[in-house]
Every structure is written in structure tokens, then in C-alpha cells.
Design a protein around this nucleic acid. Structure first.
Lengths: 196, 196
DNA sequence: CTGCACATGTAAGTAGTTACATGATTAG
DNA sequence: CTAATCATGTAACTACTTACATGTGCAG
């Protein structure tokens, strides 16, 4: 049981439906917690039957109705207990890095595929950096960062967002420089076609 | 089936036993793939019955015997295929970040616990940076980095190690600055004891 | 003679992923 | 009238984690 606390933490700053949470977990929260939509729907049911969150129906006329959730006192207590226990070490699983690890042993064509993926990821990382920049600005309102960090609130989301931005910045740098380097060393198929 | 490729990639640079792999996965490889020892033992069995790796018994007199594995041609082919398919997006799960996300809603005592954990992690990150620095030096031999990246080999492990080091450097910065900031804002129990 | 590092596994339980299914409303 | 976004779920499967079990040889 680990996803539950990520969901509770995400619900602290407002009411969200499963669908909305799914999008949040695909963006900001994904920097420290990964989950697919299905997990969220089933976790929300479980959390509600356990009384850690409470849902209420929102009737919408312009689109399908939805059910939004808020954290109950019992839910806050659960987060409190969670924060008092030692956190398990973080886990990362990144297939693209596995591919780079093996890059000396694969064919030219396979290396090209890895390079192309690195370039795609660099673009995605750049987009995500933009989103984080925007979120940070929104969170701190009209305060400058230094002032916000000293006096603003809520602080938690701002701090995790800072971490997410730096992570994506590092991703961007590494994806870009690694793709360029591998291109230079293995040569691209296009270059070889040109050369012939 | 995802762990298999991480194991194959890790075995590319030499013969290792399950126990040795477990330590590798606890250090360098852990920066892009997480696995506990038990997973490695069972995955190694499966990979061997599928013919992707081959094991051989090493008789040791000073310590218990062990079984070390090498990647077969079929294993390399599998990695080749893997590199040609689109990589699934990377996943991260970091409980400590979940705690920070919730930091505005928890008690003073719980926040103190989170701060202490951040400080512990900063120490661990610093240690890991040292290990990476050492590994990088070892991998490039007597070449300087620029030359190694242009001409050296194996390149894959060096590149992933660079990524690991930067990740830990960012971790260190963030853990340290976040702990300091939260200490400043919530005050420590010790400070309050002093003040009273 | 105790604890630690080495070395490998089985079994049970929990968590996460994938495939499938459904249906409303709006924009083009 | 078709695709996209919104909205939620069930069921089957796969992967991962945790607890337990066992044994060697060395160092203090």
C-alpha cells in the first residue's frame, strides 16, 4: 500500500475526480509518483470505503457527471502516520537508460532507434519544463521565489515542483547531449546514405 | 517482462552471480532500474531456461560456491529487439517526495521526521556521488573525459553513469536545501526546547 | 562463539498493468 | 457523423515485495 498516500497528498489541495487525478498523475505528480488511470479509480474506491476520503457527485450538464473527492480527518491522520515512518527508498525504472547501457553491443539500426527515442524524450522534457515553470509562477502568485519560500504557502507543492523541474532539466540536458554524442560516434543512417 | 532487459544489459560487461548483481542493482544500476535480490535470482533462472544467458558454477574454497552468468547470442538478439521497440515512459516512485507534498498539512513532529529523512538522504546521495565519480574514473582509464566520450569504450555504462551522477547531485542539492528551508520555517524541536 | 558477508532459494501475498467495456457531450 | 475529451469501471494477468529458510567461512 503505497499509492494511497500519493493520492491523499494529491487531494490535499482541492477536490478532484478520478479523471482529473489521472491527468495530474500524468504531469506534476508523475515526477515522484507514477500511476495509470485505472489504479486511481480503484484506489479511490478503496480509500472511500476506508473513510480516508469522501466523495460527492457533481451533476454536469455540459459533460458527463463526475465524482470528486476530499480528504477526511482520518485521511490526514493517515498521512501524518505515514510521514512519521521511514520512507522506503525511491525507485526508478527507465527502459531508455537500459538501452543506452547496452548501446555498445547492439546494431547500428538499433542504436539509431535509441538515438531517435532520446531526441523524442528531449522534446517531451522541454515541454514539461514549460509546464512546471507555469505551475511555479501560479503557485507563488505575485511573490518572488525567495519571498515565497520564506513566507508563502502551500509550500509542499512548490518544493516538489522545484524538484520536478530540475529533474526534467537534467533529463533534457542528458537526452540532448547523449543523442548528439551517439549520432556523432555511430553516424546516422541518413549520413551514410549521403556518403554513398 | 521488463526486468529481464535490465539484467541482460548489466551482464554485458562481464560474468556476475546473482549476489553480485544484487549489489550492482543497489548501486549504479539502481539509478535507472530498481530490483531487490529475490527478483534477480528468479529472473536469472528464467533467463537461463530461455537460453538468453548461460550460467557456470565457480568453486570457491574461501567462501560458498557461486553461479555466474554470461549473455548468450540469443540474449544479445533479445536486447537488439528491445532497443528497436519504443521504450515505455520511465517511472518514479518516491515516498519522501509524497511526504514533502503533504508538508503543509501535517504536525510539527511529522514535519521534523520528514526533515530528518531529507538529511539522511542527502548524506546517502553524497556517498553515491563519490562512488559514481570513482566508477567514471575507472571506466575512462587514463583518458580525459572529452577524449573518452569521443573515442573510448564501452560507452554505454559511462553515459548511464554520468546520468546517475547528475541525478544524485540534484538529489543532494534538493534534499539539502529543502531540509534547511523546512527547518527554518517550522523550527526544530531542539530549537523550541532551547527557546523555552 | 557471535556476528557479518557471501550465496541462493521457496512460497505467499500485494501491487501494478493491460485489455476490454460503456456511455455522454462537444467540436469540427 | 466522426473523432476527441470527459468520465468510470470490471476482469484477467503479470510483476513485485515480503517473509521465511538454509548454509558456508572468516574476523573479531
Amino acid at each position: 500500500m503505497a499509492l494511497r498516500h500519493a493520492v491523499l497528498a494529491a487531494l490535499l489541495d482541492g477536490e478532484y475526480s478520478g479523471y482529473q487525478l489521472a491527468k495530474i498523475f500524468d504531469l506534476s505528480v508523475s515526477n515522484f509518483w507514477h500511476a495509470v488511470p485505472q489504479q486511481l479509480y480503484s484506489e479511490l474506491s478503496r480509500l472511500e470505503t476506508e473513510g480516508l476520503i469522501r466523495g460527492r457527485q457533481i451533476i454536469q450538464h455540459d459533460r458527463p457527471n463526475k465524482r470528486v473527492y476530499t480528504v477526511t480527518q482520518a485521511g490526514v491522520d493517515e498521512l501524518e502516520r505515514f510521514a512519521l515512518t521511514p520512507a522506503k527508498p525511491g525507485i526508478i525504472r527507465e527502459n531508455l537508460l537500459v538501452m543506452v547501457q547496452a548501446v555498445d553491443h547492439i546494431s547500428h539500426a538499433a542504436a539509431d532507434s535509441v538515438i531517435a527515442q532520446l531526441e523524442d524524450r528531449a522534446v517531451a522534457a522541454a515541454a514539461k519544463i514549460g509546464v512546471f515553470e507555469h505551475t511555479l509562477k501560479h503557485l507563488r502568485g505575485d511573490l518572488d521565489e525567495e519571498t515565497f519560500l520564506r513566507t508563502g504557502s502551500p509550500l509542499g507543492p512548490y518544493l516538489t515542483c522545484l524538484r520536478g523541474r530540475r529533474f526534467e532539466q537534467e533529463n533534457y540536458e542528458w537526452f540532448t547531449s547523449t543523442a548528439r554524442l551517439l549520432r556523432g560516434r555511430t553516424g546516422t543512417q541518413a549520413e551514410e546514405d549521403e556518403a554513398s
